[in-house]
Every structure is written in structure tokens, then in C-alpha cells.
Simulated assay, not measured.
Amino acid sequence: MKKTTVMLVMAMAGVATVQAEPVKLYGQLNVSAQSGDEGEGRFSELKSNSSRFGLKGDYALEDGLTLVYQLEWGVNVSDSSSSNVTARNQYIGLAGNFGEVRLGRHDTATKMSQGKIDQFNDFEADVGGLWEAEVRANNSISYFTPSYNGFGAQLTYILEDSVDAEDAVSAALFYGDDNLKDSNIFLSVAFDSEVNGYDSVRVNGQTKVAGVKLGAMLQRQEDIITGLEQDGWLLSGAYPLGKTELKAQYQTLEDDKAISLGLDYKAGKDTTLFAWYSSFNLDTPTPDRDYLAVGIKHKF
């Protein structure tokens, strides 16, 4: 709690001392009451699903340059342990006609390449539950190209930070709008080299037909040390019914499988009530597991 208080005071002090700059305080609270069975019997708990807060902004410089920055922290609002506050994307950078460069901690290009395809992001059935390559990289330099005719790219270079390590690279090519607002299609292809001990290739696509969102992802990953190669795929869908959205997702990694069903209810502009069920069938020594949750998410 002491650490949380210090970080919150620092954040608020930052807002107060840079009033001349366009600084935005933002975040989200996402908490669910959850019942789970991970092979040893059913139990209940409150889960803070990547609740977060942060500061971000930009500042006009000379010669057509803009300073950009973001400081974001995750906060566990259901637990007062020593890991209550954790670092998320935190960077400083420059933007201009050349694109944008960010220095610090940032999601890799492969992680960013999924767009909004993962309908259960931040929950138990997040794609990172089965797949590698969902990395928020320390010591990274990220470059974003300008958008041209719907195309854009991201390159993440991760510095080794150790004499025994290797520099790593993550790159992605994008087309369309990942929010499916400016266009009804989003496509991307990405790869990782030496990122957190894995090489990977990922292909993503999402479209909207008569208001229904349909998404698909393919991934091949290889453990650099063992040489183990694994393939997986994911299908997702979201169907709107007034203020309610019905969601479904199916993900595999070789013989491991996860299926999820859920619904979101828009209770207000920034507030969503949700319920979901996820089941994992795992062909490993790890026992099968399933989860049922209801909760509330509020953005500010």
C-alpha cells in the first residue's frame, strides 16, 4: 500500500506541475468475481484484470518535431501484496513526418499486431494463456512508420542488457483499422527473433460483416533452447444486440485447446458489465481448468 500511495502521489504531482503541456490522466478499473477449478477443486476469488492508470501526452518542438511520452502502471485493486503496482508501457519519444520513435518499455510489434482480435484480452483466456510472443519488452526502441494508403509498420529492437544475452527484434506490417471504424478490415503479419527465448511468426485478420466482428490468428513458435516448434490458431467473434455484445473464442496450441463464451453489457459510455466462461483442455501434465466470472469495467 505504501508503494501504491507513493506512485499515485507522483502521478498527481506530475499533472499539477506540467499544466502548460497537454497531459492526460487515464486508466481503467476491471474487477471480476471469479470461480475457478485448476485441477484441485473449485475456489472463488476477486480478480483485478489488468486494471491500470497512467499519464500520457505530447509537446510541440521545433523543426516539425513532437515530444511524446507515456507512463503507465498496472494496479491490483483486489490485493494489497507487494506487487500491487507494476510497470506497464513507459516511454519517451519523438514524432514527425518520419513516423514515431519510442524509447523505454513497450509492447513488441508482434504483441501489437493482434489489434482487437482477442475478445478475452486481460482475462484467463487472453491469447498469452497458451501462446508465447505476448511480450512487453524492457530496454526497447520501437519505431512506427507513417500510415500510407492504409499500410503501416512497427519495428521493436530490444537491447540485450547482458553480456550473455542477444539483442532481439520484433517486426510487424499492418493494413486497415484495428478498431474497424475507418475500414471493415484489419490485417497484419509479424515475427519475433530471440524475444524472451522464442522465435515466432504470427498472421492476423479481422473483419466486420453486418456489424458482426470475425477474427482469426495463426501462430508458429519455436523455443530457441530446445528447438521445440508448436503451431496454433484462434477464431473469435462478437455479435451486437443493442447494448449487449455476445462473444466467443476458440484457441489452440498443438493439442492444447481453450474455448470461451461471454457477454458485455454497455451500462454507460465508459462502463461495461460482463460475464464469461472459459475452459482449457490441456494435453500436458498441467491439469485441465475452467473459470466462470462476472464483473465490471470502467474507463476514465
Rank of each mutant, 00 (worst) to 15 (best):
A258W: 00
V135I: 14
K266N: 02
L218E: 00
L29F: 10
Q249M: 10
N84H: 14
K247I: 04
P240T: 04
R220D: 00
D177C: 12
V203R: 06
E45N: 13
H298T: 13
N204P: 01
Y250L: 10
G211H: 10
Q154H: 08
M112L: 11
L8D: 02
G128K: 11
S188H: 02
A293T: 08
F174C: 06
G129Q: 00
K266M: 05
G93R: 14
L214W: 05
G41K: 14
S170F: 10
A172W: 03
D37V: 13
A20C: 08
D290E: 11
V163H: 06
A293D: 00
A267D: 08
L246D: 01
M10C: 11
S188G: 04
I117E: 00
P146I: 09
T272N: 07
I225Y: 13
L241R: 11
G99E: 02
M10E: 11
R105W: 00
T4N: 12
F151K: 11
V169R: 15
E124A: 13
L292V: 14
T284R: 15
L65D: 02
E124S: 14
A238P: 03
D270A: 14
K2P: 00
E194N: 15
Y291S: 03
Y91K: 12
K269G: 05
L282R: 09
A216E: 00
T86L: 09
T284V: 04
S83Y: 13
D58Y: 11
D270N: 15
D264V: 07
A60M: 07
D256N: 14
Y91V: 13
G242V: 07
E124M: 06
S278G: 10
M7V: 14
S44T: 15
T145S: 15
T271L: 11
S278N: 09
A137M: 11
V85P: 10
V209M: 10
G99Y: 11
D122M: 13
S78R: 12
S279N: 15
K266W: 00
P22T: 01
A168G: 07
G197I: 05
R42C: 03
Y157A: 08
K181M: 04
E38L: 15
F53E: 04
E38D: 14
G232P: 02
N30I: 05
V189T: 06
Y143L: 09
I185M: 13
M112A: 10
L55K: 08
Y250E: 00
T286K: 08
D177T: 09
I259F: 15
F300G: 06
Q70L: 09
V169M: 15
S80N: 13
K299Q: 04
L94V: 06
G150M: 09
K116W: 01
I224R: 15
D255I: 02
E100F: 08
L8W: 12
R42Q: 12
D37I: 12
G242S: 04
V201E: 02
T244F: 10
P22A: 09
I158E: 00
F120I: 03
D270T: 09
Q230H: 05
K111N: 10
A109H: 05
G232V: 01
N84E: 14
S236Y: 07
P22C: 06
M12V: 07
V6H: 12
L65N: 07
L234I: 01
G99D: 03
Y250A: 07
L65H: 07
Q119F: 03
